[in-house]
């Protein structure tokens, strides 16, 4: 896309207590984009997000929000961000409204009307004057979203935002995020475990595993691409051929099964080449794809570290 990036992560690394948790993440997020950040537990999603909002300092690399570096221009960079990180902790001894007033006071652009609108957007208008300690998890999550979007940020960062929402709440939430992105022009960066959520909501997705981004792609492309599965005698050689000649990343699934997404590349020519190179093909088929397949494939067999 031609527009300037809302969020740009370059070679972001973080080492905590001698353990490298994020190992060089590169991401770019454009206006009005909904960006999914997918990864198994302990992959480093939250850690990355903490670096984005300046809660922890990167060991290496930089975060740029709307052209401002978080490290050097913290205030300007963070003026464009609203976020929820992990659980939506609010001041439990204050009411929902008082919580919002607290955050409104820290940003002079928020009017009383805006607070009311936001409360209605997240559907809390009936309970907003109750103490947060009396809220259910889902209600707290809604309040969390409310405080994140309060100041109309250009970039909305949500770490597992649908945690605790009921199915109706999730649909509402999805519609809200869509509306914010497409009508108000917010960019949204969502981390989630819920693949279906990401699949239904996001334009782009990045899959992170053990601190490394292993795939970034357009969600529609991934879903519409067919996967091809080959069974052959020498998977290593096949992967090498795909990489060197076709620029395709293939995955070894089982002992002699590999899988790759071909996009526009012609399957017959690839098969020809395999045979020319002396590989014995026993089976080849096309598969309709879901994000879940992709996710499981990509992260298969790894323990949480």
């Amino acid at each position: 896309m031609p527009q300037t990036a809302v969020l740009e992560l370059t070679n972001l690394k973080k080492t905590i207590k001698g353990k490298e948790i994020v190992k060089g993440v590169n991401l770019t997020l454009y206006p009005s984009q909904i960006f999914g950040f997918l990864g198994p537990n302990g992959a480093g999603k939250t850690t990355t997000i903490r670096m984005i909002v300046g809660l922890i300092k990167p060991t290496e690399g930089s975060v740029t929000i709307c052209g401002y570096s978080v490290a050097h221009d913290f205030v300007k960079a963070l003026s464009n961000v609203g976020c929820i990180i992990e659980s939506p902790d609010m001041y439990k001894y204050l009411t929902g409204m008082e919580n919002l007033l607290q955050f409104a006071a820290m940003n002079k652009t928020v009017s009383q009307q805006r607070i009311k609108d936001v409360v209605e957007m997240v559907g809390l208008q009936h309970r907003v004057n109750d103490k947060v300690s009396t809220y259910s998890l889902g209600m707290r999550q809604r309040l969390g979203i409310a405080q994140a979007i309060l100041a109309r940020p250009k970039l909305l960062i949500l770490d597992e935002p649908t945690n605790g929402l009921d199915p109706a709440g999730m649909t509402e939430f999805r519609n809200l995020i869509r509306k914010l992105a497409y009508e108000d022009g917010m960019s949204v960066f969502v981390s989630s475990h819920l693949l279906l959520e990401i699949q239904q909501m996001c334009d782009m997705v990045s899959i992170i595993k053990q601190g490394r981004v292993i795939k970034t792609a357009n969600v529609q492309d991934i879903l519409h691409d067919d996967w091809i599965e080959w069974q052959l005698n020498d998977p290593e050689q096949a992967i090498a051929i795909l990489r060197n000649h076709w620029n395709i990343e293939a995955l070894q699934l089982k002992k002699n099964t590999i899988r790759a997404c071909l996009s526009q590349h012609p399957l017959d020519k690839i098969n020809d080449q395999f045979i020319r190179e002396g590989l014995a093909l026993t089976y080849c088929s096309a598969k309709q794809n879901t994000l879940e397949d992709l996710f499981l494939d990509l992260t298969e067999g790894d323990e949480i570290v």
Partner: peptide, 14 residues
């Protein structure tokens, strides 16, 4: 301990 410090420190306030 309540985690609200996160909310406070991600504002556009140093």
């Amino acid at each position: 301990s309540s985690g609200t410090i996160k909310l406070l420190l991600v504002r556009n306030v140093p």
